[in-house]
Design a protein around this nucleic acid. Structure first.
Lengths: 245, 245
DNA sequence: ACGAAGACGAGAGCAGTGCTCTCGTTTCGG
DNA sequence: CCGAAACGAGAGCACTGCTCTCGTCTTCGT
């Protein structure tokens, strides 16, 4: 019995396991006491290590939080993806609403994790490179809806991809912003017009604005039927996104 | 010279001054290092007191933060009010856009204070009773625009105050939500229809959603011309609010 | 006008934090 | 097989919020 380990040695395996366990305990502490109260020493205590040992796995408290942030982005992204996939592709309204509800449900089930990623960044904010991938999963789901709608011409007015004339006489879009939209289109929204992209960004901010307001207490005393409020708001947003209202 | 003090004794006056000074220093620390790093001891050090003395003025760090929160709400509320008052009353679009820009400008000038009030609440959130007044100032400005628009019939479709039939066949609104809207109308939006109120709530969440996304970095790498983006988004939101698009 | 009562500031102290450094032990790889 | 690297434990530093005590000073009722 030289080394019964698989390709990776036993050391690497227990390291992966311990890393996961630390993260799991930290996630529980986060859910129970909030990100501000997340104590590296406390999770170390619960894992059965001394605090300094944790630093072998996460070089700092911020890095632990970053790992939790990435997981949170992945979780909400996955929720959005399965909700989107659960609808017929042509059912744009249904897809939009399903994604909205899935994101909100995830947020309500994991409020502290939601606050971690969509609340105020803890310090002067810094988004490590490895967060932007997971962070954009929800956005890509949304772009997917716009792409499918634009391809089938089911999307409201101004479906043409040409950014030359911006729809009617309604709005002037600066060259810089038009370039941003072009970049977005190239990134994952081929064939989606500027107008539709702008509508998408509009409902995007509205989706997370509504969830944040609800979770952070800004609707307290104003709205009581949160479910109905969210539904009607997102339905309206869906109309705006797809039909142009 | 018995006591040259005015009505309030000298004690009360220096207490008020010291309270203000502590708050001012704390606000500076907040702006420079963020709410998480706000240290009562550091503030005390700079004011020239020992840490325990500060507790004579603010019973805990949270109470200090609450005081800053109230001030922040008041500041952004005042900014919105002067912006609103700077426009002709009948210029609904102008008022809306001016308020949006004022809020955003304040937020960009005081990002940490914005994060304090519109970001994630630090613990499991609790809104002390004395914050809800200042917190609602911006909302009341918005309601004012809707009231004026509804009164002059300048607001889009479904201006009638009757909540019986909800505009067209577009949306079903639950009884509970209709009651919420009625409460809102009674609170400060007389004569504003359900439909318009819903539109108002929609653009309200969109306004703060857009600002939060910008300040919290969620538009990073996607939008570069923040000014133009915000303007076009809020213009679109204004169309939705006033014209019903 | 005075003396009790309360407000106040300073200091020490407690429990907790993030993080660093050192020091034996264990595992891995050449 | 043995040097090198990874690891866990422990001590320690500087810092935090908060409490308690103890003299001093203002205020207010008598």
């Amino acid at each position: 019995m030289t080394t019964g380990t698989t390709s990776t040695g036993v050391r690497a395996r227990v390291r992966a396991e311990l890393t996961a366990e630390i993260k799991a305990v930290a996630r529980r502490h986060l859910a129970e006491h909030g990100s501000a109260a997340l104590s590296l020493r406390a999770v170390a205590r619960e894992v059965g290590m001394v605090s300094s040992a944790v630093y072998r796995y996460f070089p700092s408290r911020d890095d632990l939080l970053t790992a939790l942030i990435i997981d949170a982005y992945d979780a909400v992204g996955a929720a959005a993806e399965v909700a989107d996939a659960g609808r017929r592709r042509r059912d744009l309204h249904g897809r939009w609403l399903a994604v909205c509800r899935a994101v909100r449900e995830w947020a309500r089930a994991n409020p502290q994790e939601y606050a971690l990623i969509y609340g105020s960044p803890v310090p002067g904010y810094r988004a490590p490179q490895d967060t932007i991938g997971p962070a954009s999963r929800v956005s890509f789901v949304l772009l997917g809806i716009m792409v499918d709608g634009s391809a089938s011409a089911a999307m409201g007015p101004a479906v043409g991809g040409a950014p030359a004339h911006t729809g009617g006489a309604s709005l002037q879009v600066s060259a810089a912003l038009r370039a941003d939209l072009a970049g977005l289109r190239e990134l994952g929204a081929p064939g989606v017009s500027d107008t539709v992209l702008l509508r998408g960004l509009q409902v995007w901010t509205q989706l997370f604005g509504a969830i944040s307001f609800e979770l952070f207490g800004h609707l307290h005393g104003i709205v009581h039927d949160y479910d109905a409020f969210f539904d009607v708001q997102m339905r309206r947003a869906g109309d705006l996104l797809i039909s142009g209202h």
